[in-house]
Amino acid sequence: MNTILHITKHQQWEEAKIIGRYRADSLSSEGFIHCSKSTQILKVAKRFFDNQKELVLLFIDSDQVQAEIRYEPAEIGELFPHVYGELNIDAVYQAIDFEAGEDGLFELPQEVIDLQLT
């Protein structure tokens, strides 16, 4: 299984589960859903989600995603997975709470560490 990750608000994920598909705000504004590899998730969290609460980290089986996934360069010179379309929620095999600690910093969850070991 090839896993990519996506950070979203808890409420957005709950709504997606009800309607059966997930649309990030970036899908409308940029044409794709931003995702990350396990080695990139802390950089993304620090840059875009600093001090935000009620976040969820989605574990996505990229082989099950119905929309096109493209690995494209970002400003930091790394390739990031982008999902070009709505995300079918059956491709999400795990969702965990993902919030910064009291010091405002994110820590790598054990579930992501385990991904890096496989």
Rank of each mutant, 00 (worst) to 15 (best):
K17R: 14
S29Y: 04
T39A: 10
D61P: 07
N2Y: 06
T8M: 02
I69H: 08
Q94P: 02
L105R: 14
R23A: 13
L27D: 04
G85F: 05
Q11R: 11
A100L: 01
G77E: 10
E86G: 09
A45T: 10
H10W: 03
F49H: 14
L27T: 05
G77W: 08
Q12A: 10
V56P: 00
T8Y: 06
Y84D: 01
K9I: 00
I113P: 00
R47P: 08
W13G: 03
L5G: 01
V65S: 04
E111F: 01
S38V: 00
Q52K: 12
Q110E: 11
Y84H: 15
A45Y: 11
N88G: 10
P81L: 03
H34T: 10
L5I: 02
V112H: 05
K53H: 08
I33Y: 00
S36P: 01
S29E: 08
V65A: 07
A74D: 14
D63F: 04
E75V: 11
K46I: 09
G20F: 05
Q94N: 15
E30Q: 12
L108R: 12
S38P: 15
R23I: 04
I18G: 01
E75S: 15
E111S: 13
F48G: 08
G20V: 06
L42F: 09
F98G: 02
Q94M: 15
K53V: 09
A45S: 14
K46E: 15
I4C: 06
Q12K: 12
I4G: 02
E99G: 12
L79G: 00
Y93M: 10
F59C: 11
V56N: 02
L27C: 04
S36N: 01
P109Y: 03
V112A: 02
G77F: 11
L57K: 06
H6N: 09
W13M: 05
G20E: 03
I60H: 07
A100R: 05
V83A: 05
Y71L: 14
